[in-house]
Amino acid sequence: MNIFRFVGDMSHLASFFLLLAKLIYTKSSTGVSLKTQALYLTVFVCRYLDLLVAFVSWYNELMKIFFIAASAYIVYVVATSTRNSNASDTYRVEFLVIPALVLACFVNETHWSKGGWSLNVMEILWAFSIYLEAVAVLPQLKMLHQLEDTTNITMHYMASLGIYRAFYLLNWVYRLYYEGYWHPIAVVAGIVQTLLYADFFILYYQSVLLRLPS
């Protein structure tokens, strides 16, 4: 594992702790999009089905289990929050889920000549998870643009997700150059996903960094 991948993963891990800290310590899920969190849970469950068939490393296994468990817990907390004022969580997620699923059926890494039926279904779900992750942040972005009182911790959560994506791009450049590792589906979707965060970082700069006491 190279340093870019590791920093990306740690930033991704930090994003979970930031969101959990916000939910637990402020006892409020205001400003957190349930839709985005439910999409992330879907992403992790679909992508990490390979937990059942392929062992890569203990690092990978534990991270995958943590991502599924933490996002399930976050979805539970946000969904059951009584002081939830998420009337602005209005993104039409079917416009994200259905195209991602259709695209995954046609553009994926299946090899029907090799492997069994179940492995190929896993490949379609893997591609679906990649496409869905690329756009899963959109409901959260829409909320951030609509809400005035967005807490800094939610913004830091988003920033750590953006850093995770940026470092994964660097990781792929590194791996392509030194290892010849190349998953075009993941890379193209990853570039789209990272570009979506560019919009967020402008907001982050204006609303958080410019407000920091000097």
């Binding site: 068939v53 492997g115 492995l119 896993m122 998953h183």
Partner: peptide, 10 residues
């Protein structure tokens, strides 16, 4: 080897 084996990222 199975294709899933080559996916070692998160």
């Amino acid at each position: 080897s199975a294709k899933a084996d080559s996916k070692d990222e998160l």
